[in-house]
Design a protein around this nucleic acid. Sequence first.
DNA 1: GCGACTTTGTTCCTGCGTTCACAAGCGGTT
DNA 2: AACCGCTTGTGAACGCAGGAACAAAGTCGC
Lengths: 218, 218
Amino acid sequence: MSSSRPRIPEATVARLAVYLRVLTGLADGGRSNVSSGELASAAGVNPAGLRKDLSHLGPCGVRGVGYEVATLRDRIARVLGVERSRACVLVGIGNLGTALAGYAGFGSRGFRFVGLFDAAPARVGQLIGGQPVRPMAELDEVVTATAATIGVIATPADVAQSVCDRLTAAGLRSILNFAPVALSAPAEVDVRQVDLSVELQVLAFLGQQRGATVEVGA
Amino acid sequence: MSSSRPRIPEATVARLAVYLRVLTGLADGGRSNVSSGELASAAGVNPAGLRKDLSHLGPCGVRGVGYEVATLRDRIARVLGVERSRACVLVGIGNLGTALAGYAGFGSRGFRFVGLFDAAPARVGQLIGGQPVRPMAELDEVVTATAATIGVIATPADVAQSVCDRLTAAGLRSILNFAPVALSAPAEVDVRQVDLSVELQVLAFLGQQRGATVEVGA
DNA sequence: GCGACTTTGTTCCTGCGTTCACAAGCGGTT
DNA sequence: AACCGCTTGTGAACGCAGGAACAAAGTCGC
């Protein structure tokens, strides 16, 4: 049953996804072998940390030689579950939603959008990447028909919570939220938050702090 | 000179941005007072952690009462540097770039895009949010004219590094990269990486791990 | 066949982030 | 004016992630 996989830290999982991307690029370029140092610099991490990350999936390199690109790629892909294609639904086909629906990076990583939804009647019926935008009323139907497990929210903030409620009611267990609000959901539902403006604000703060020591004010 | 601000942890800065957003919403809703518990649940964090975050900017609450919404909002805004409007340039006006350029959340947080750039001649001249897309040749000119300090990369991965080089050469010190590649830049340049597909992959892994214990394979 | 070099896998350690728990302080009430 | 309840702010402990150094192992050269 549960084999030699106690648990992989979340931070490691995020980096494994990066390694997988780099390895895929190397394999397409014809490379058959990599060292941890080279792979680490391509991924932007520390070589020792990379080896520690890889150690979570058991020994998969050859000492004195390095890692076989194709083997390691398949190994990581299997652990991350990229092999099985995952059905996702996307709610909110605005600028960001359209960008997400058309982002090629998802398709090549085992994710396929099986339903694009929007509440605005004007958007319903539009074709995005060859797929029609559906009305929210069809949500449950599509989720059950396609066995989708992941929902992506790209709506305005004020409707995100109600969309989240509908997604959980439809049976989805994983939700990725791009709306700038904290969502409340049942404990068995994983909610991950991505706030684009927060990243920009952290960057601005670091720049301001390094650029000049400003006084905190009276 | 350096007043009572030794340094604020990066994780705290990211959360301060979230608190600022929540507080702005509360102020618009007419609220004048909040407790740490309420603010924490609205932001999706632990109350004690919130208070510790706030302690980095000195005492700013009243014991037994809570925090004054407007005062705390202004305090955080000043620390994060939201008061001064920051000029940003955006390179790569594809689906994602268009979404970023039109995202209202940036403007209300002190960020304004002063230049939209794309290498494709077909895109140059298009109006995005009332602003024309410019050719890459005008990059240095716009950066120096507007004193922009932040660059956002939303290009395909294969040109991201060269765009990064041009941005640093133009004098930008902070770069936010949405392209799925690790960028190399001089040490004095802050580079932050946002990979949308990584978030989705972590979510899928967590769901797979919890949903069923899958064997690691032979 | 043996030695030395290269590279992985692991272990230790340091530092940070998070959480819990308590003391201090302020407002309201009697 | 004094007491009581509520909330903040801070101190300490726990757990985790990151980095560096070391040992194991396999290959190449002689």
